[in-house]
Design a protein around this nucleic acid. Structure first.
Lengths: 161, 161
DNA sequence: AATCGTTATGTTATAGTATAACAACTTCAG
DNA sequence: CTGAAGTTGTTATACTATAACATAACGATT
């Protein structure tokens, strides 16, 4: 099963639990795969999970520097690449930013609801959406591989401004 | 009705017809809305429609310069912004690139099939996909506004390499 | 035709995002 | 201990996009 963050980003929740669960999952998954979750990678993962707003690579870099780290962009991008490869985070293409994966370890395509106002992102994994797309693609003989689905709109809290 | 390019980017077709149709539609739409399809904007639209592969802003700039134009990035981005605003082109977020709109003037959300091998893009507009997403979003109380749907995979021609 | 507000374009500089290339260090199996 | 693989450091640079301000073209009104 997925952890408690699945699709619940917009609801009230104890976010410390999200972070803790994400780190635990990450540790487990890296263990299974011989991926080395080094201190830096772990720290980057924590920063990505700081809240449900996607965070840019340079924002992460700033945070690290504020903590005394004396590094350059490649360090951050390498950590992000590692986390992406192991399915621990997602890249939000339309924001050039990164967000924690709510279903690490599970096979899934990222489907994101992005609030235009508060910037928070919730992750879906609706098989109906995937099916509809694959069917539609198949009609043109197209073999779908990876889906980028990013829906902009207003989250429940931001609708009554 | 949509023009002949709808979803047919992967099939054999006379592409000169696509370009011609796109320009005609653009001219009509701009006329209706008091949008000024200036020479530069028209030229940029032509370059975007040169084939079914999305093209980056700087690639367009290079082309223009090759034609003797002596301009800078803002000129290209302004033309692209104009074309986007009037629904004549789409931006492909996952490629930082732009592609001709197959249904200009019609209300629709862009859904794109992108071939990982030949880079060509076909545009879909499957109401089932839209509906599935909106339903799924509604379950979380999310009010969907704009959809970014970009599917990577292999087009029919590239499947038998 | 002259004027004026609006829209479009030119120009320079800079912000923001990402990677290439090579050096140095760490880790760990053998 | 050693060597191979993996990780991080470092510098430079490529690619994508916009800010800010100057100039020019257009088009309705006088």
């Amino acid at each position: 099963m997925s952890n408690s963050t699945s699709g619940q980003a917009f609801a009230k929740h104890d976010h410390r639990h999200c972070i803790k669960a994400a780190l635990k999952q990450a540790s487990r998954i890296c263990g299974e795969r011989n991926g080395r979750l080094t201190a830096q990678r772990k720290r980057v993962l924590e920063l990505v999970w700081k809240n449900h707003k996607p965070v840019g690579a340079y924002a992460i870099l700033e945070q690290l520097r504020a903590e005394g780290f004396n590094g350059a962009p490649p360090t951050v991008y390498r950590a992000l690449d590692f986390l992406l490869e192991h399915g621990l985070i997602h890249r939000i293409e339309s924001l050039n930013a990164y967000t924690g994966c709510a279903h690490p370890g599970e096979q899934h395509t990222g489907q994101f609801l992005i609030c235009s106002q508060c910037q928070r992102v919730a992750e879906l994994d609706d098989p109906k959406v995937k099916t509809a797309i694959c069917n539609s693609a198949a009609l043109l003989g197209f073999e779908a591989d990876h889906q980028v689905i990013e829906i902009r709109g207003l989250c429940p809290q931001c609708q009554d401004h």
